[in-house]
Design a protein around this nucleic acid. Structure first.
Lengths: 345, 345
DNA sequence: CTGTTAGCGCTTTCAT
DNA sequence: ATGAAAGCGCTAACAG
């Protein structure tokens, strides 16, 4: 990209670099003829002000960074993220921001952070003690956490994972199930220093919700019934298959994400299990696929797109000097469809 | 983001700016103690080299831009793109590139192009005479077209849209259908100057394929049976509903994308139509949902993820000075499932 | 091993 | 209305 520079245009147009700059940023300060000539030359050369040089001065790049610890592949393998990104993208479009996906570089989010030129970040599912989170705070970079911790000076957008999960489990219990296999979301690996804190955030909150419901009913939910997998279709499929091959014979399944549930439905049909009769399933997220699959998937609805919008808005508003810090916890509500039993209960 | 600068660190560490720079870029050139001291101070200040200033010199930002004329919303509303982006993202991860989504700004892709700091672009579904395409060429910016024209000096990745579509239509004809409603993909609006060229690219190629099959069978495919809509679930649903309300009573449906087909299946069930008996449907893309929905969707498989990988690789290789220009046309193959008739034919 | 110096391409006072 | 000149924060010869 051996682009012409401002100097080239200035020379060929017989004006100073200032004039060229004005032509693009404040045309009114140039005489009609000068403007015309400059633009003419610029056009011939295919010249356009170098955005990098420009940002160096403006201290603004018009880019919103999305910190995705799970990596790009996992991101696009889960439709939930598509909905989330849809919301974020919508606000970006409105405010003329571009979206930069920032996955770990060589397994390290820290490294990515060092290289990305953005005006601010939205972290997605980034845990409180992740090094990247700590760097962000130390740098005093503008950022908003999405599905993450509610930090003192940082806006956060979350959903009532605990409550939603509890409803899901309670629903199964109401339907007469006294046990369930839990298919959990394995957190992004990598830079978790504190092994103990590995299952925190969304994954932990949902598990706690399941636990609470079982506890309330005086039922156990032992560790052996909890399996973690990637939040992808393959992840869910494999997890159920593995559990089955390991001897598990669950009558009900609590999937921490819909895409896991969808994968599990695959596995179920492969195993000859009928949903919901042999295996009742409740997911989480309420992605579009829940209505397409057969039977339709019971799930916990969360306002994914709205979450994205909110987080993006919070971040972009903050640019304008708004120091308002808000911690949102959006509601999650159970939606009963066919996969958890007959509609009649 | 009032970050500390290199000068601050230099001052506090009692060294020159060069030393600080070396500490981050070529530590071996510093004595152990100096390095240690610099890093120490930098850490305290939360200092990190400003990526923008850095790129200004390196002439490299490590960012791959994705030009999306349809806008971000449409992008995430179609799972096909998720698969495509998954492929692109995979290669980006391997080469430590980030992905920047570049949708139109204020309805103009040109404006976006002016602002984005990237090392190169992948255009997605961008038509040959789109102003943005022309600017890219005039600027001699490195880019690769995906689902776009095969330009002389520019690598291109395409799929055999014509052949795939022809197979789809031929299949329907074989099944005994003598007519079909076509649900086409409405191209991104905006800066198409030449009204006549509006339906070119993927949309035109697939239509031509449908036409060819019908022509071969000596059947007509009149304009009145072609409707264009957004390539989203809502788009497909609405399109079939509109056609129906307009008096159309198709026995078969050719959807130019699977997500349109999925939407149409919604509409069909709402209209009390049974698929495939009352309405046979064949889609295009072979997204995951085709296997989830009921009945499973017959479609034309295209290697979406591979397309993404290939395009990204072509672009990134080109960075390294490789001037190899390649025009790829990947195969598209019909996959018959339940939505187009009994498996037995 | 460390510092001096000259830019990268652009914007922006401040003069003229 | 236009231009000269001083940076934005950083890197990389080139000296020492």
């Amino acid at each position: 990209m051996d682009m012409a520079t401002i100097a080239d245009v200035a020379r060929l147009a017989g004006v100073s670099r200032t004039a060229v700059s004005f032509a693009f940023n404040d045309p009114s300060r140039l005489s009609a003829e000068t403007l015309q000539r400059v633009l003419q030359v610029a056009d011939e050369l295919g010249y356009y002000p170098n955005p990098i040089a420009r940002s160096l001065i403006n201290k603004r790049v018009g880019v919103l960074g999305l910190l995705i610890p799970q990596g790009t592949a996992m991101l696009f393998a889960n439709p939930f993220f598509a909905e989330l990104l849809g919301g974020i993208g919508q606000i970006c479009d409105e405010h003329d921001f571009s979206l930069l996906l920032v996955p770990p570089v060589q397994g390290s989010l820290l490294r990515s952070l060092a290289r990305a030129a953005v005006d601010g970040y939205i972290t997605i599912g980034l845990e409180e003690h992740h090094p990247a989170m700590e760097l962000l705070r130390r740098r005093k970079a503008p950022f908003v956490t999405l599905d993450g911790p509610a930090l003192p000076q940082i806006s956060a957008v979350n959903v009532d994972d605990f409550g939603g999960a509890r409803q899901a489990a309670a629903h199964l219990i109401e339907r007469g199930h006294r046990e369930a296999l839990v298919l959990g979301i394995r957190p992004a690996q990598g830079e978790i220093t504190d092994g103990v804190a590995a299952y925190t955030g969304v994954s932990a909150a949902r598990l706690a919700g399941y636990r609470a419901a079982f506890a309330l009913a005086g039922l156990p939910l032992d560790e052996g019934r909890i399996r973690y997998c990637d939040s992808t279709r393959d992840g869910g499929r494999q997890a159920l298959l593995d559990a089955w091959n390991g001897g598990a014979r669950p009558g009900a399944l609590l999937a921490m994400s819909d895409i896991i549930a969808v994968g599990a439905m695959d596995a179920a049909s492969r195993l000859g299990l009928r949903v919901p009769d042999d295996l009742a399933i409740v997911g989480f997220d309420d992605i579009m696929d829940t209505q397409i699959c057969h039977p339709a998937l019971s799930t916990v609805h969360q306002p994914s797109e709205e979450k994205g919008c909110l987080a993006a808005r919070l971040l972009i508003d903050r640019q304008g000097g708004g120091q308002r810090v808000e911690h949102h916890v959006l509601p999650a509500t159970l939606i009963v469809r066919g996969s958890s039993g007959t509609q009649e209960g």
